[in-house]
């Protein structure tokens, strides 16, 4: 099965290891992974700031670049939600592009849905061990709706001990540009999230969206908390050998491996 990876701008720029982990999961399940080169971002920064014209331009570029693929995989519920739900909405007044966007969105999957529903994977490399807690991003709860699927995937590795948050439905306070428009409110929200994470006793927090991960890791590190932060692809693929998000690289090994 040939699939295309849309890495997402935050994985591309901040956490290449999560991109390679995604490739590894897909290849282990027998996929041939293409990474179309003309990809930048899904367009959410423009879309969420009311700039529909630029959001449309970027959406068109993504649709054109990926239109030949049967399966387009995104290691982010937020970007997947944008591509699946919001791309068609962007072109509601343009019949030609509305059709293109709708056809395109039918081929888009967030990583968890694809692993669970299409590849139906039941095992993952059992190299990761530990007590983790999972932060459900808002888009994974309410757009791609993968809460249970995520648990099923994590349960494929018996060495993972999942300690659930007390308030798993709460937003972490990232919200794209929200966190820089309203840094004080965002701080208050992420503080609540961190208190919840700490209360589980987990040593690692995992999520499927880089935005949330940067936000949570950023606050954890500011508070000098030892809790580690990883993308779910890294944990499932057992690729947690490098420094966790926001941690110093003390392994002297910064090249990601595939």
């Amino acid at each position: 099965m040939r699939v295309a990876l849309f890495a997402s701008c935050l994985v591309d720029l901040f956490r290449p290891n999560a991109g390679f982990a995604t490739v590894s999961l897909l290849e282990n399940a027998g996929c041939i992974v293409d990474v179309p080169p003309e990809q930048t971002c899904c367009g959410q920064p423009a879309y969420n700031n009311g700039d529909k014209d630029n959001a449309r331009d970027i959406a068109k570029q993504v649709i054109n670049e990926f239109s030949d693929y049967e399966y387009i995989i995104v290691p982010s519920s937020s970007c997947a939600g944008m591509m699946i739900k919001h791309y068609p909405q962007l072109f509601e007044d343009n019949a030609e592009w509305y059709k293109k966007a709708t056809d395109f969105s039918a081929h888009c999957y967030d990583l968890v849905t694809f692993l669970h529903d299409i590849l139906k994977i039941t095992s993952v490399p059992v190299t990761y061990q530990g007590n983790i807690t999972y932060h459900d991003s808002c888009s994974s709860l309410r757009e791609t709706r993968v809460k249970d699927k995520t648990r099923h995937l994590l349960a494929c590795n018996e060495k993972i001990n999942l300690l659930e948050l007390g308030n798993p439905e709460a937003c972490c306070g990232f919200g794209g540009t929200f966190c820089v428009k309203y840094p004080e409110i965002s701080e208050s929200m992420v503080n609540d999230k961190i208190a919840d994470i700490e209360a589980t006793g987990a040593d690692t927090v995992v999520s499927g969206d880089m935005g949330c991960l940067l936000n949570i890791a950023g606050r954890l590190k500011r508070l000098n908390k030892p809790i580690k932060v990883f993308h779910i692809a890294e944990v499932l693929a057992g690729m947690t050998g490098i420094a966790a998000i926001g941690d110093a690289d003390d392994t002297k090994k910064s090249e990601p491996s595939s």
Partner: peptide, 29 residues
């Protein structure tokens, strides 16, 4: 592994560190 202050990101760094990226982007690697 992180920045506690960056000139163009003070709204972020006022309350959070910014996790440092790897030196090479995914696409480039």
């Amino acid at each position: 592994g992180r920045f506690s202050w960056l000139p163009f990101a003070s709204a972020w760094t006022q309350s959070k560190d910014l996790p440092a990226p790897a030196a090479q982007s995914f696409m480039s690697a």
